[in-house]
């Protein structure tokens, strides 16, 4: 009896210490998610209502051109941004890894954009890309009267401007992650490759990149989360325009939730995003846990 009591007390203390986090988990994450899913199946407009309408909000959502544009924008942006920032970040890391002289300085410069918020990044690039006083103006001032660079005001090109700004913002972070990965590679591997007579590019492609799976995974996860929550860059840079050409799903949710007073449609959009993410992450986690189990069994 006596021996059990201190153990009970320590377990109680553990639960007390954990309870705030547990409360946040239950109320904020699980509670709010459940509430959002529920609301998305009601006819709520300005205020929540409990008038169940099934999947009507989802029908309306996918018939909404602004939503479909948002989704296709996100796909274009996500693909291009992920590929470009991983590639550029890796190349920057490789360049710095050649034992360049001003390594610390260059590393800080490359990492600098990441210290800015997306709002600042968006504003800066909005100015740089603005045809009347940005790059196009510089080109014209240099004497190229026909010089045109107006992607940010063209509906078909504006999304690439978002990609450009986002890559500028994130490439430095990817570089830092990749550089850490490169530095973690045993010096002897490089020596062995030199004795084997492998050209440097071949060592990177066939030996180093396959060894950097963890670095690529880390960078990809970070990039992917910023793709899903892409909102402030679009707001600051183009405010979804011209027209609805640079709308993104998170902005759709926010606008319908707070400006257009359409809670039902907003929660349906949010739920759609959640389902999409879960559909991507779920199989990945399952595959990882299977792999870990297989490795453990070895």
């Amino acid at each position: 009896m006596l021996a059990i009591r201190p153990r009970l007390a320590s377990r109680l203390a553990a639960w007390v210490a954990l309870s705030p986090a547990l409360a946040v988990l239950v109320v904020v994450y699980i509670g709010c998610t459940t509430w959002t899913i529920w609301i998305s199946m009601t006819a709520s407009r300005m205020l929540p209502s409990s008038n169940f309408v099934g999947l009507r909000q989802y029908e309306a959502l996918f018939a909404n051109e602004r939503w479909t544009v948002s989704v296709s924008n996100l796909v274009i942006f996500g693909t291009m941004f992920m590929i470009a920032s991983l590639a550029l970040g890796f190349l920057l890391a490789v360049a710095i890894d050649q034992r360049v002289r001003a390594e610390n300085l260059l590393r800080s410069i490359f990492l600098y954009p990441f210290s800015m918020s997306f709002v600042v990044t968006g504003l800066v690039w909005q100015w740089v890309l603005n045809p009347t006083f940005g790059i196009e103006r510089i080109g014209k001032n240099l004497g190229f009267a026909d010089f045109k660079f107006d992607w940010i005001v063209r509906q078909d090109m504006v999304i690439y401007c978002l990609v450009f700004a986002a890559v500028w913002h994130a490439a430095g972070l990817v570089m830092a992650i990749m550089l850490a990965g490169l530095r973690g590679i045993d010096e002897d591997i490089w020596k062995a490759a030199r004795v084997d007579g492998l050209p440097t590019w071949r060592v990177y492609v066939s030996i180093v990149v396959p060894m950097m799976g963890a670095s690529f995974a880390t960078a990809s996860v970070l990039m992917a989360t910023s793709v899903v929550r892409l909102y402030d860059l679009s707001v600051a840079m183009t405010n979804g325009g011209p027209g609805i050409a640079s709308e993104v799903p998170a902005k759709f949710v926010m606008d319908h939730l707070f400006e257009r007073q359409n809670i039902g449609l907003a929660t349906a959009a949010a739920t759609s995003m959640l389902i999409t993410v879960a559909a991507v992450v779920g199989p990945f986690l399952y595959w990882q846990s299977r792999r870990r189990a297989a490795a453990g069994a070895h």
Partner: peptide, 10 residues
């Protein structure tokens, strides 16, 4: 080499 320096993914 001391650390074997094998190419780990091959």
């Amino acid at each position: 080499f001391q650390s074997y320096a094998l190419y780990p993914r091959m």
